[in-house]
Design a protein around this nucleic acid. Structure first.
Lengths: 204, 204
DNA sequence: GTCTATAGAAGGATAGAC
DNA sequence: GTCTATCCTTCTATAGAC
């Protein structure tokens, strides 16, 4: 069975259910912490049935990671060199924060992977991601050199955007516990705060 | 055997070796990913010997977490309401970044725990940590109200400091891969960048 | 205090009936 | 395609000799 190319409706539905269940369990428990029993139960399948669609636990994990990488890099890829610098960077911040709000499990899946030393995506990080970051860093450096934004280290600016936005997904439990039960949605205030932060950082 | 109160030199040395080994393995593999075999090997002890000093794997993990919480909150606790606002906050940023540089495994131990929903330290997060954050947020709010720093959401300011500094420990692998082999120590540039960022955010 | 040996449970993966 | 039963490995933890 080739999980990447399901032929029938049932196959597609089951593969999707497995992916959704695996995302749920892997993102919450990490790779070693997750069990096929848990994933199978969440997916509503038996464990052998799950292994009929994917050859191994690791194959499910890899399928999730590689399937998500594109979506994860899209916001940075969309940074337009021809756009207005501050607006472009703020739009990137907003897109990235929206990912944390709408896809926190995907964010935690990556966080788990990076924390463990990125054993499965080391190549992508040091390859495609690094190339993309270098390209966009060049754009930002150009903007700074032209005096269109304040001088700033472009790589660390990008790290800051990642850190500040992903924090609200990866450390969501802590954010909610510290803010207390009075705050049911921290994202509106987070967005106002981050927009102000980057506006001031980039202002000339 | 009471791990918290070792009586002899040998006991103290072994308990310390176990703590160091467990920190190494738990921070890199997560709780479930770590095995007593790995910890015992790093500590230079046999597995049963390890379990002579600690009653269980979970007990070692809890011992590490609770032992580190104080050190982890110290930088925020040191924020002085009587000090000069911008200098106090920048000093906090520097102390926190130094923790990421000097104790990255401790940072990753906490990150792993929070990612998994903070099962062992939920009480501390929603209790002592929340109280401390609220207290210091009050101080920061007072500074803003007095016009001594720019108006800013104090809780999200503190989250920003956590996110930006811990990123360099928790995502160290990614930072190094993206910066490439030309950069052997990202921390000096990170500190310059973060100091500029918070200086601008707080400037009136 | 430390070791070898092992119990007992959990988890990944497979066999084979249907 | 899906299930029950099961194999085999890994892992936590304990027993008991020294």
């Amino acid at each position: 069975m080739n999980a990447a190319r399901p032929r029938t409706r049932i196959q597609r539905r089951n593969v999707d259910a497995i992916r959704a269940a695996a995302l749920e369990v892997f993102s919450a428990q990490g790779f070693r912490g997750a069990t096929l029993d848990q994933i199978a139960e969440v997916a509503g399948l038996s464990k052998p049935n799950l292994l009929y669609y994917f050859p191994s636990k690791e194959a499910i994990h890899l399928d999730l990671l590689s399937g998500l990488l594109d979506a994860w890099l899209a916001p940075l890829r969309a940074l337009d060199p021809a756009g207005e610098p501050v607006a472009e960077i703020l739009a990137y911040v907003r897109r990235k924060l929206a990912l944390s709000r709408d896809f926190p499990r995907e964010s935690r899946l990556f966080a788990n992977e990076i924390l463990r030393g990125a054993p499965h995506i080391e190549g992508v990080i040091g390859g495609a991601l690094r190339a993309l970051v270098d390209e966009k860093a060049g754009v930002i450096r150009g903007w700074a050199a032209a005096g269109r934004i304040a001088p700033v280290d472009p790589h660390h600016l990008i790290f800051s955007i990642w850190a500040l936005t992903q924090h609200y997904a990866d450390f969501e439990v802590q954010v909610r516990l510290v803010l207390g039960p009075g705050v049911d949605d921290p994202f509106p205030a987070a967005e106002r705060h981050l927009v102000m932060l980057f506006r001031k950082l980039l202002a000339n």
